[in-house]
């Protein structure tokens, strides 16, 4: 299946891309998607347990993915 991963802030700059499309196995979860991201240029430094969102809600790394899911890597937030 194909999923889109959104990148923000320093992740976006490290990857030189605001989003990445990945082709994953049908039973993949978020952790597998993140592990695949680490093989991309600039993203080897991703933390072991990054904060992620799926379809605009915070989600566990163990969450199963569905085709078309919008995954986002959430660096340490700094609002206010």
């Amino acid at each position: 299946m194909t999923v889109t991963i959104l990148l923000f802030a320093n992740h976006r700059e490290l990857a030189n891309a605001a989003s990445v499309e990945l082709e994953l196995s049908a039973d993949a979860n978020v952790r597998e998607a993140v592990d695949r991201l680490r093989s991309l240029p600039g993203l080897a430094c991703l933390p072991a347990e990054p904060t992620v969102a799926v379809n605009r809600e915070y989600a566990s790394l163990e969450r199963d993915l569905n085709p078309g899911d919008e995954i986002a890597l959430i660096p340490a937030v700094a609002g206010g």
């Binding site: 923000f8 802030a9 320093n10 969102a53 660096p75 937030v77 700094a78 609002g79 206010g80």
Partner: peptide, 14 residues
């Protein structure tokens, strides 16, 4: 509200 914004709102500062 401000503490939750700082903890949860997906926004980044350069």
């Amino acid at each position: 509200v401000i503490e939750e914004i700082k903890r949860r709102l997906p926004i980044w500062k350069r």
